[in-house]
Design a protein around this nucleic acid. Structure first.
Lengths: 233, 233
DNA sequence: AGCGAATAGTGTGTATTGAACACAATTATA
DNA sequence: TATAATTGTGTTCAATACACACTATTCGCT
């Protein structure tokens, strides 16, 4: 097989920012490292790109190994490539972020990796440039959620409109008007009334909806300003 | 120096999609390859990441070598990493896109690289996955220009409002209303009247403006829905 | 010099959308 | 059965988008 003459072959890592939602707050799935390097410190879940593995496949592998989840929103964020970013050896890292609804995750796999769901407000300092990665992922999440209807990705199968509202309020740390929120969501025609009611609710039980997945696909691919009022800064 | 045990060190390439504007159409700076591999075919301008070079610096180097330009809008687009994307050898490519105002470019450097400004409508087929890269860059350009005021990056130092309108019409292949466009741009307070008039114009000479660069920085970093009406599809 | 063609610039009304707020309905608990 | 807490629906006002009318400047032609 022919090769390029250029000799600078380097390690390609992947790191995953995994966002979840517990009903109140946005959470991150972080690793308390029980391996070298930087043993004992906190980091993102990551791994190296294998020789016969597509980049996208590697991202799915890493996410699957940690969470047992395989069917989530997963998007490439950016590639970090400063020379000194990894003190061990020159490594560039292709960063992905995932949105998971924390329902059918594999708790054993998570425990085995020494991973924990941590609130954004309680995030510890992370190794290398992982803090910058999280910061950028959060910016991208806010950006994207204002334009596309990805808030649903953090919801369980069935959910009420007030629950969905909590996701957006958590993403933007900003309270929204119930009445206007409800009208906006319903006007998209993305929700299907299941006929069921939320049993967890203490007082009035809200309608449980599920996502109209076909229409949702259009909302993802099309550029639609979903929440123009949620501008950043 | 310590190294990772993982053995899969691979080549990291960078490819640049370079957008320009000639007053009528969006143009791409493409290479008619006079070197291997794929000699004689068209491609993006690219190169390999060097050992002691930050990723961002490599992108600037490649753009500078080709155009002589060093102070342009340059943004990382995405990293392409399919196993077979480069038939010569496994290579991942970090793709950047640049917006240049085709004024003070180094024509000798461009000629030396056998590069040409090609209209989007006349783009030839490119090697490897470069077509997909261009397609995605164009999508990103449309996305971004609808939200942020990056249309200015394709303008010369001084320009008239109708000229700026042409940029947006070229990006979206869509005609815009003169009156509303003018009002919207002026309301941003991003333009400074130079007092001069456009001498090239055949009939009524328009006012020449220049960009208020401080305010412009805010428009770039802030999320602002710049042209909500320019939705994609 | 005067006129028409072409392009640049300013103004105005209507329809749509966002945002604030009032009120009615449901359910557990006291 | 009243009360507290939360959900669901309606209404009004202001801001913005959008369509379209009109005026202004400049060149070239008669």
């Amino acid at each position: 097989m022919v090769h390029y003459i250029h000799s600078n072959r380097i390690l390609v890592a992947l790191d995953c920012i995994i966002f979840g939602f517990d009903g109140e707050e946005i959470k991150l799935l972080l690793i308390k490292r029980n391996f070298e390097p930087e043993l004992g410190k906190w980091s993102l879940m990551g791994g190296f790109l294998n020789a016969d593995e597509d980049l996208e496949a590697a991202a799915h592998r890493i996410l699957y190994n940690l969470t047992g989840l395989d069917n989530n929103y997963l998007e490439q964020l950016q590639t970090f490539g400063a020379v000194k970013r990894d003190p061990v050896e020159r490594t560039i890292s292709v960063v992905y972020y995932a949105l998971v609804n924390s329902q059918q995750q594999d708790l054993n796999a998570i425990r085995a990796h020494n991973a924990y769901w941590i609130s954004l407000s309680e995030k510890p300092d992370l190794i290398f440039d992982h803090d910058a990665m999280v910061e950028q992922a959060l910016r991208q999440l806010r950006y994207k959620a204002a334009l596309h209807a990805i808030g649903f990705e953090l919801m369980p199968e069935k959910f009420t409109i007030p629950q969905l509202q909590k996701v957006y309020e958590a993403i933007y740390t900003k309270l929204l008007d119930r009445r206007n929120f409800s009208r906006k969501i319903l006007s998209t025609d993305l929700l299907i009334d299941t006929g069921e009611k939320d049993t967890n609710s203490v007082t009035k039980k809200g309608k449980l909806y599920r996502l109209n997945t076909e229409k949702y696909q259009k909302y993802l691919t099309d550029y639609v300003s979903f929440f123009p009022e949620l501008t950043l800064s």
